[in-house]
């Protein structure tokens, strides 16, 4: 009976909704670096992250949504393509870190666990042992809110040339019943998705450009139940030394260049590029090249590759 009550209590707590601020920064011996903050809202298995008012990410178990407020669009990032966002989802998911910490045996030589009360709040602290820190050169510490089962602070210390460099995350927690509307993409916006599926045609995307291999290709498709249409393509070529990059962006032309803007924003491209004309590009489509390689050489090289592609008959 008591066990059942505990399970019910646990379920109740996990389903509660919370909001607050996340402050994150780095600190070396004397200086605070790269200070930043976000607002978050968490409910059941959905999280809303706001960097600026009206521009937010929604992360959920089923879909990932990024709303680009300035151009009135909802971008759905196909979940399978972007596994790298699970960390941010997990830290704000009530009970997730708590359960991992609970599973650590009391006699672990890697972790030291403590329980304290600060300002009438019960806090569980878990930290890597000093021995572990000396051996590995890094240390993680979590302060967890016992009632809400959520982290309120995390520190990661790394020895950088003998001196400690600390990443700090502080999370404020306010418990409140939040409306489901907060966790839904706005109605009336145009819906797009970033996906691996191409519905339009083949695009000329060489396997290698100037000896740099092609990375993953993403397509910007309209997101409709009945019809899905490719409106843009993004692929990147990045040298191992990270000193040369080439981004190829195909986009269907429209009056406001909206398709290009969406791709730029989706992939954090802070650079405009130059238009490239190739025989493969059909009417109504454009290709922009964003690169730090000199344009005349790159243009000539791409033309040669396109010609080889045509002659080999492998299709454009």
């Amino acid at each position: 009976m008591i066990g059942l009550l505990l399970i019910l209590l646990n379920t109740f707590q996990v389903e509660n909704s919370f909001y607050g601020e996340i402050n994150f920064y780095k600190k070396n011996q004397k200086t605070t670096l790269e200070k930043n903050e976000l607002r978050y809202f968490a409910k059941k298995n959905s999280i809303r992250l706001e960097e600026e008012e009206g521009e937010f990410f929604l992360l959920g178990e089923s879909d990932n949504v990024y709303v680009l407020q300035d151009i009135n669009t909802n971008i759905f990032f196909e979940k399978a393509l972007f596994p790298g966002n699970k960390e941010i989802f997990n830290i704000l998911k009530p009970g997730y870190v708590w359960d991992k910490v609970s599973a650590i045996p009391p006699d672990s030589d890697q972790w030291v666990k403590k329980e304290d009360v600060f300002n009438d709040v019960e806090i569980v602290t878990i930290s890597n042992s000093d021995t572990y820190f000396e051996e590995q050169g890094f240390k993680t510490t979590y302060w967890l809110h016992r009632e809400y089962k959520l982290p309120i602070r995390r520190e990661r210390v790394v020895l950088n040339e003998g001196y400690p460099l600390t990443d700090i995350i502080e999370i404020s927690i306010n418990k409140e019943e939040l409306s489901d509307d907060l966790f839904m993409a706005p109605e009336g916006n145009k819906n797009y998705k970033i996906t691996a599926r191409n519905t339009k045609k083949d695009f000329f995307l060489p396997e290698e450009i100037l000896g740099i291999g092609k990375q993953k290709t993403f397509y910007l498709n309209t997101h409709k139940l009945e019809e899905e249409e490719t409106k843009g393509v993004f692929t990147s070529y990045l040298s191992e030394e990270k000193d040369t990059y080439i981004y190829m962006v195909y986009f269907q032309q429209d009056l406001k260049n909206e398709n290009f803007k969406i791709i730029k924003k989706s992939f954090d491209l802070d650079l405009d590029g130059w238009l490239m004309d190739l025989p493969e590009i059909t009417d109504g489509w454009n290709l922009k090249i964003l690169s730090n390689y000199p344009k005349p050489i790159l243009r000539q090289h791409l033309k040669t590759l396109a010609l080889e592609n045509q002659l080999s008959g492998s299709g454009a």
Partner: peptide, 20 residues
């Protein structure tokens, strides 16, 4: 990650976290 801007910065701090 499908995350950009400051949100991506935050996510970077979480990579290699033993609990996440």
């Amino acid at each position: 990650t499908g995350l950009s801007g400051g949100v991506a910065d935050f996510n970077t701090l979480l990579l290699e976290d033993p609990f996440l």
